[in-house]
Design a binder for these strands. Sequence first.
DNA 1: CTTGACCTGTTATGATATTACATACATAGA
DNA 2: TCTATGTATGTAATATCATAACAGGTCAAG
Lengths: 160, 160
Amino acid sequence: MPDPDLAFAAHDHAHCAQDALARAEAVTAAAGARMTPVRRRVLEILLEEHKALGAYDVLARLAVEGFGNQPPVAYRALEFLVDQGLAHRIQRLNAFTACVHPGKDHAPAFLICRTCHMVAEAEASAARVSLDAEAAKAGFLVERSTIEALGLCPNCRGQA
Amino acid sequence: MPDPDLAFAAHDHAHCAQDALARAEAVTAAAGARMTPVRRRVLEILLEEHKALGAYDVLARLAVEGFGNQPPVAYRALEFLVDQGLAHRIQRLNAFTACVHPGKDHAPAFLICRTCHMVAEAEASAARVSLDAEAAKAGFLVERSTIEALGLCPNCRGQA
DNA sequence: CTTGACCTGTTATGATATTACATACATAGA
DNA sequence: TCTATGTATGTAATATCATAACAGGTCAAG
């Protein structure tokens, strides 16, 4: 993860989002998957901010733009994006966020600010190694793991 | 955590559960909290197996036993138990599991078997240290974190 | 024996997610 | 080009998870 925790830092977000979108196109092309209008639009919506959106929030946006307005429309597009590694599901929030580093094979930790609700990705490999090792002691084989932190982002810390 | 990953090992479960219950009484007494019939019963239900139960599963059990049969009855008892550290919420499952080590101040990782659905607690401090450090690099202050692993428990690995 | 805090129960509703089925589209093979 | 096949989308209906708001009951401190 070359640009850690981008989300909290001031950055050219238009560029950030456009870059992620371009990479997403490349990723799906490489995987032989189809980046359809709904899917692209959902990704764009998620990319607008470094926050997590609920499926119904996304759905509402889609509906006014003439896409379907039933839950499966949103859930399917979101599932596709998650499968392709273009978005992540935040368990703690029952919500979804665009991946900032599409293309990289990664399983990040998420830093969720309880005040401004921004969500950043953080490198999680060290934590995962510890977890896998601890699980191995019990004979448990970890296939996937969820690591999410709730707390205060640098900006909100300053204000408190 | 002195008896790591108890859940997956053969053990005298009646004793395990009874011990947890006894400690729970001690914990609540020490906290000046009330271990009422509903709350005790919910804890007992959770202690019957090393699995996670949804609030509505618990509620159904309560209802046939003459307790209230509306969701808040279960959610309130579960919330109480979680607050007291007597139960944990498993985010990934939207479900709850009894704490195996009540009284110890701990924030474990959870090992969730995708086949038999058993849930074990594992030591998470090393992983937490890594996570906190990584977050600190971004200026993020971690207040609480969720670490959950999905995979195969020793028993189910054997069968695969 | 009353007051105040807390617990329980109920109604109602809100929020999140999936199943099932019908229709439309895209692409590879005849 | 046509058409068969897999895949994507749209919709209705329903399942699952969770909370707000309020009424009544219990308990223990003063």
